[in-house]
Amino acid sequence: MTCNEFNKQLAMLQRSGEMTQEMQEHMDECASCKETYEKEQLLFDFVEEEKALKISPFVTTRIMAQIERVEKPSRMVARPAFVSLLSVVVLILGFFSASLFSGSEASSLADSTEIIATDYFFSANPGSQIEDIWLNSYSYE
């Protein structure tokens, strides 16, 4: 077995410690390949050491607290948004409903304006009745 073959076979081993007899024999004779093998062992010892580390059991509580913290603000943001939207809707409705109620008065106002104009231009004595008409037309104010 050559060193190249040894290295290739070493890299092909899926788990450490699965060496063949042939590889073992080559390693006994070749210091360089033995060193490569030992370095690989160090790598797998390192992996085992890191794998053995246990996560804190409190991490679940922390994760759930974070999830619930994220969930709650979304509801708290939604509520003021809903209130603002409702206020705007009420305001708009108020505006239009006011014009509904004042519809008759608006038409009487238009009539009175027409009377004023007619009186002003066609009357022999313009202005004499204007004050009376105004007083009558705008009495609701």
Binding site: N7, M12, E35, T36, K39
Partner: peptide, 10 residues
């Protein structure tokens, strides 16, 4: 990945 690691570590 194993081949690369082998090369770098040796």
């Amino acid at each position: 990945a194993r081949k690369r690691l082998q090369g770098w570590l040796s």
